[in-house]
Write a protein that binds this DNA or RNA. Structure first.
Lengths: 139, 139
DNA sequence: TTGAGAATGATAATCATTTTCAAATATAAA
DNA sequence: TTTATATTTGAAAATGATTATCATTCTCAA
């Protein structure tokens, strides 16, 4: 059973066909997915699926901290599994030339952020890092 | 003459009363401003001002890299001067309990980000850092 | 099997933002 | 200055993403 299913069952939220279809798409997604991407893919699994249900399911997953919404300027919002649901934890580099999003991880960065939060009197619960850049030529 | 005015003049974009009113509000703002905050304040200076013009002016400032839009989940978007227009450069800590936004600066963090970008084959043009946290008790 | 509550899809409503457009204003040319 | 052209403006309409509504359909425990 998938992580999403496990948590829903645990919380007493029923595992309907619509929700399972959305889960399936999200759990097998390699990276970022837009609402419409999720909708289109999940509709293949559950043809009668409605867009409202996708929004509802996705919002529920977000409030359970299993999914995270990323909003970048001028780019359609994307969703992806949180560290709680996936193993890896990463951040984003957005290419200013073509809008492409790359990922990176850095423990050093995470530790520094935690330290900074503490210095400012906060216990860090989460963070969002976006680097905007331009691809280097000489490589 | 303010930075905004200087750049507009330099780019050949005319300095109309509406634009100067918006500039005035933004240049004298202490921190973050919402679109409606800007609109309300600038209307005092230029009573006939329309909301469309505020959006247009703010968008122009953003594309000139003089202003930056920050979008936080569940919070109205805010605008603030970029490092190019202001002297200081900072990031945000969002209090998960009350939604309050605090600011912090860290050269160490900026340098680390630049290094990470370079390691990933990018020249860093900008970045956005948000830490979500909970205020510590024992202080 | 049945009945109360939860979930659903279609549609309408909402909200921030953008576009349209005719009128007003600024700018340049003569 | 007068005139012609281009830019800017505010109001209103259009848009696009998201949320709310609501009648219908499903779930599942009794």
């Amino acid at each position: 059973m998938s992580v999403f299913e496990k948590i829903f069952k645990q919380k007493g939220i029923s595992l309907t066909a619509s929700r399972l279809a959305v889960f399936n798409v999200l759990e097998n997604a390699s990276g970022h997915m837009t609402i419409n991407g999720i909708f289109t893919a999940a509709k293949q699994l559950d043809p009668g699926l409605g867009l409202s249900t996708v929004y509802r399911t996705v919002n529920t997953l977000c409030s359970l901290n299993l999914l995270e919404k990323h909003e970048f300027p001028d780019i359609e919002a994307v969703y992806e599994k949180t560290a709680a649901a996936a193993k890896d934890h990463h951040h984003h580099i957005i290419d200013r030339d073509n809008g492409k999003i790359e990922e990176f991880s850095s423990c050093e960065l995470d530790n520094l952020l935690r330290k900074i939060a503490r210095q400012n009197g906060y216990d860090m619960l989460g963070h969002k890092i976006e680097i905007y850049g331009k691809k280097l030529q000489n490589k």
